[in-house]
Protein backbone atom coordinates (compact mmCIF):
# COMPACT_ATOMS: atom_id res chain seq x y z
CA UNK A 1 0.00 0.00 0.00
CA UNK A 2 1.48 3.32 -0.99
CA UNK A 3 1.02 6.39 1.10
CA UNK A 4 0.67 8.67 -1.85
CA UNK A 5 -2.74 8.39 -3.40
CA UNK A 6 -3.19 9.95 -6.79
CA UNK A 7 -6.61 10.93 -7.96
CA UNK A 8 -8.18 9.28 -10.99
CA UNK A 9 -7.49 12.18 -13.29
CA UNK A 10 -3.78 12.16 -12.58
CA UNK A 11 -3.54 8.39 -12.92
CA UNK A 12 -5.59 8.45 -16.07
CA UNK A 13 -3.56 11.14 -17.80
CA UNK A 14 -0.39 9.26 -16.90
CA UNK A 15 -1.90 6.02 -18.20
CA UNK A 16 -2.64 7.44 -21.61
CA UNK A 17 0.96 8.55 -21.83
CA UNK A 18 1.93 4.90 -21.53
CA UNK A 19 2.54 4.66 -17.77
CA UNK A 20 1.57 1.07 -17.01
CA UNK A 21 1.89 1.52 -13.26
CA UNK A 22 -0.68 4.30 -13.26
CA UNK A 23 -3.10 2.05 -15.10
CA UNK A 24 -2.34 -0.75 -12.64
CA UNK A 25 -3.29 1.57 -9.78
CA UNK A 26 -6.60 2.36 -11.44
CA UNK A 27 -7.26 -1.29 -12.06
CA UNK A 28 -6.56 -2.24 -8.46
CA UNK A 29 -8.66 0.65 -7.23
CA UNK A 30 -11.77 -0.43 -9.11
CA UNK A 31 -11.51 -4.11 -9.98
CA UNK A 32 -13.60 -5.35 -7.05
CA UNK A 33 -16.35 -2.81 -7.52
CA UNK A 34 -16.50 -3.53 -11.22
CA UNK A 35 -16.47 -7.24 -10.51
CA UNK A 36 -19.33 -6.92 -8.01
CA UNK A 37 -21.30 -4.87 -10.48
CA UNK A 38 -20.70 -7.44 -13.24
CA UNK A 39 -21.74 -10.16 -10.82
CA UNK A 40 -24.95 -8.35 -9.96
CA UNK A 41 -25.83 -8.18 -13.63
CA UNK A 42 -24.90 -11.73 -14.54
CA UNK A 43 -25.33 -13.76 -11.35
CA UNK A 44 -22.42 -15.96 -12.39
CA UNK A 45 -18.82 -15.79 -11.24
CA UNK A 46 -17.10 -16.72 -14.48
CA UNK A 47 -19.32 -14.45 -16.58
CA UNK A 48 -18.60 -11.66 -14.12
CA UNK A 49 -14.87 -12.23 -14.53
CA UNK A 50 -15.22 -12.01 -18.31
CA UNK A 51 -17.32 -8.87 -18.10
CA UNK A 52 -14.97 -7.19 -15.63
CA UNK A 53 -11.92 -8.01 -17.74
CA UNK A 54 -13.64 -6.79 -20.89
CA UNK A 55 -14.60 -3.51 -19.21
CA UNK A 56 -10.96 -2.78 -18.33
CA UNK A 57 -9.69 -3.87 -21.73
CA UNK A 58 -12.27 -1.58 -23.30
CA UNK A 59 -11.24 1.22 -20.97
CA UNK A 60 -7.81 1.03 -22.55
CA UNK A 61 -8.89 0.37 -26.11
CA UNK A 62 -11.37 3.23 -26.13
CA UNK A 63 -9.21 5.54 -24.06
CA UNK A 64 -9.71 8.45 -26.43
CA UNK A 65 -13.43 8.43 -25.64
CA UNK A 66 -13.27 8.02 -21.88
CA UNK A 67 -14.97 10.72 -19.84
CA UNK A 68 -14.02 11.59 -16.33
CA UNK A 69 -17.04 12.62 -14.29
CA UNK A 70 -16.63 14.47 -11.01
CA UNK A 71 -12.98 13.50 -10.98
CA UNK A 72 -13.71 9.81 -11.24
CA UNK A 73 -13.31 7.23 -13.92
CA UNK A 74 -15.71 4.87 -12.18
CA UNK A 75 -18.94 6.05 -13.84
CA UNK A 76 -17.47 5.39 -17.29
CA UNK A 77 -16.32 1.96 -16.18
CA UNK A 78 -19.71 1.11 -14.72
CA UNK A 79 -21.53 2.14 -17.86
CA UNK A 80 -19.15 0.08 -19.97
CA UNK A 81 -19.58 -2.86 -17.61
CA UNK A 82 -23.35 -2.65 -17.94
CA UNK A 83 -23.11 -2.46 -21.72
CA UNK A 84 -20.77 -5.42 -21.81
CA UNK A 85 -23.09 -7.48 -19.63
CA UNK A 86 -26.08 -6.48 -21.73
CA UNK A 87 -24.51 -7.33 -25.05
CA UNK A 88 -23.44 -10.67 -23.62
CA UNK A 89 -20.21 -11.32 -25.35
CA UNK A 90 -20.27 -8.88 -28.21
CA UNK A 91 -17.34 -6.89 -26.82
CA UNK A 92 -15.96 -9.97 -25.09
CA UNK A 93 -15.65 -11.66 -28.46
CA UNK A 94 -12.89 -9.24 -29.33
CA UNK A 95 -10.94 -10.57 -26.36
CA UNK A 96 -12.14 -14.19 -26.43
CA UNK A 97 -8.73 -15.72 -26.93
CA UNK A 98 -7.20 -13.61 -24.18
CA UNK A 99 -10.05 -14.27 -21.76
CA UNK A 100 -9.79 -18.00 -22.34
CA UNK A 101 -6.09 -17.90 -21.62
CA UNK A 102 -6.47 -16.32 -18.17
CA UNK A 103 -6.22 -18.73 -15.25
CA UNK A 104 -9.46 -19.51 -13.37
CA UNK A 105 -10.11 -20.74 -9.91
CA UNK A 106 -11.29 -24.32 -9.89
CA UNK A 107 -14.80 -24.54 -8.46
CA UNK A 108 -14.03 -27.53 -6.25
CA UNK A 109 -11.62 -25.61 -4.06
CA UNK A 110 -14.49 -24.11 -2.08
CA UNK A 111 -14.92 -25.51 1.40
CA UNK A 112 -18.36 -27.01 2.06
CA UNK A 113 -19.71 -24.14 4.11
CA UNK A 114 -18.91 -21.70 1.38
CA UNK A 115 -20.69 -23.84 -1.17
CA UNK A 116 -23.88 -23.76 0.84
CA UNK A 117 -23.67 -20.08 1.38
CA UNK A 118 -22.84 -19.50 -2.25
CA UNK A 119 -25.76 -21.47 -3.59
CA UNK A 120 -28.17 -19.53 -1.40
CA UNK A 121 -26.65 -16.26 -2.47
CA UNK A 122 -26.60 -17.31 -6.10
CA UNK A 123 -30.35 -17.85 -6.02
CA UNK A 124 -30.87 -14.34 -4.71
CA UNK A 125 -28.43 -12.95 -7.24
CA UNK A 126 -30.16 -14.61 -10.16
CA UNK A 127 -33.44 -13.00 -9.08
CA UNK A 128 -31.81 -9.62 -8.93
CA UNK A 129 -30.14 -10.14 -12.29
CA UNK A 130 -33.57 -11.01 -13.70
CA UNK A 131 -35.15 -7.93 -12.15
CA UNK A 132 -32.40 -5.76 -13.60
CA UNK A 133 -33.06 -7.42 -16.92
CA UNK A 134 -36.51 -5.81 -16.88
CA UNK A 135 -34.98 -2.36 -17.26
CA UNK A 136 -33.99 -0.73 -20.51
CA UNK A 137 -30.32 0.09 -20.83
CA UNK A 138 -30.46 3.76 -19.89
CA UNK A 139 -32.47 2.95 -16.78
CA UNK A 140 -30.12 0.12 -15.92
CA UNK A 141 -27.17 2.50 -16.16
CA UNK A 142 -28.98 4.93 -13.89
CA UNK A 143 -29.87 2.32 -11.29
CA UNK A 144 -26.30 0.99 -11.35
CA UNK A 145 -24.80 4.40 -10.77
CA UNK A 146 -27.30 5.79 -8.30
CA UNK A 147 -28.51 2.79 -6.32
CA UNK A 148 -25.51 0.51 -6.29
CA UNK A 149 -22.65 2.93 -6.49
CA UNK A 150 -24.23 5.89 -4.76
CA UNK A 151 -23.45 8.53 -7.30
CA UNK A 152 -25.67 11.58 -7.26
CA UNK A 153 -28.40 11.71 -9.88
CA UNK A 154 -26.63 14.78 -11.30
CA UNK A 155 -23.39 12.87 -11.84
CA UNK A 156 -25.21 9.92 -13.36
CA UNK A 157 -27.12 12.28 -15.64
CA UNK A 158 -23.85 13.85 -16.77
CA UNK A 159 -22.24 10.60 -17.78
CA UNK A 160 -25.41 9.37 -19.50
CA UNK A 161 -26.04 12.69 -21.22
CA UNK A 162 -29.46 13.17 -19.67
CA UNK A 163 -30.86 16.28 -18.09
CA UNK A 164 -31.06 16.01 -14.28
CA UNK A 165 -34.83 16.30 -14.53
CA UNK A 166 -35.32 13.41 -16.90
CA UNK A 167 -32.79 11.34 -14.94
CA UNK A 168 -34.91 11.86 -11.86
CA UNK A 169 -38.11 10.82 -13.63
CA UNK A 170 -36.41 7.77 -15.11
CA UNK A 171 -35.01 6.81 -11.74
CA UNK A 172 -38.46 6.89 -10.20
CA UNK A 173 -39.96 4.71 -12.92
CA UNK A 174 -37.06 2.30 -12.80
CA UNK A 175 -37.50 1.80 -9.06
CA UNK A 176 -41.18 0.99 -9.63
CA UNK A 177 -40.36 -1.47 -12.37
CA UNK A 178 -37.74 -3.19 -10.24
CA UNK A 179 -40.17 -3.46 -7.37
CA UNK A 180 -42.69 -5.20 -9.59
CA UNK A 181 -40.08 -7.51 -11.03
CA UNK A 182 -38.75 -8.46 -7.60
CA UNK A 183 -42.14 -8.92 -5.92
CA UNK A 184 -42.75 -12.16 -7.78
CA UNK A 185 -39.60 -13.77 -6.39
CA UNK A 186 -38.00 -14.15 -2.95
CA UNK A 187 -38.60 -11.48 -0.37
CA UNK A 188 -35.49 -9.53 -1.01
CA UNK A 189 -35.95 -6.29 0.89
CA UNK A 190 -33.87 -4.11 -1.40
CA UNK A 191 -31.13 -5.10 -3.74
CA UNK A 192 -28.59 -2.94 -1.99
CA UNK A 193 -28.70 -4.65 1.39
CA UNK A 194 -28.18 -8.06 -0.13
CA UNK A 195 -25.35 -7.28 -2.40
CA UNK A 196 -23.45 -4.39 -1.03
CA UNK A 197 -20.15 -6.09 -0.27
CA UNK A 198 -17.38 -4.63 1.81
CA UNK A 199 -16.05 -1.52 0.25
CA UNK A 200 -12.40 -0.85 0.09
Amino acid sequence: MGNVEFDDERLWSRSIKGDGEAFRALYIRYRDRIFRHAYRLSGDRQDAEDIMATAFLELWRRRAKVRIVEGSILPWLLVTTTNTARNSGRAAMRYRRLLDSLPRRSETSDPMGDDLFLSYRDALDKDLARALGALNSTDLHLVSLVVFEEFTIAAAAAVLELTPGSAKTRMHRARQRMKVALSGTHHVPTPTTVLEGERS
Binding site: R45, E49, L102, P103, R105, L118, G197, E198
Partner: peptide
Protein backbone atom coordinates in the same frame (compact mmCIF):
# COMPACT_ATOMS: atom_id res chain seq x y z
CA UNK B 1 -17.41 -14.78 1.70
CA UNK B 2 -16.67 -11.35 0.42
CA UNK B 3 -17.41 -11.10 -3.25
CA UNK B 4 -14.05 -10.39 -4.84
CA UNK B 5 -12.21 -11.13 -8.01
CA UNK B 6 -10.24 -14.32 -7.93
CA UNK B 7 -6.58 -13.48 -7.28
CA UNK B 8 -5.00 -15.60 -9.97
CA UNK B 9 -7.38 -14.36 -12.62
Amino acid sequence: NELRVDDRF
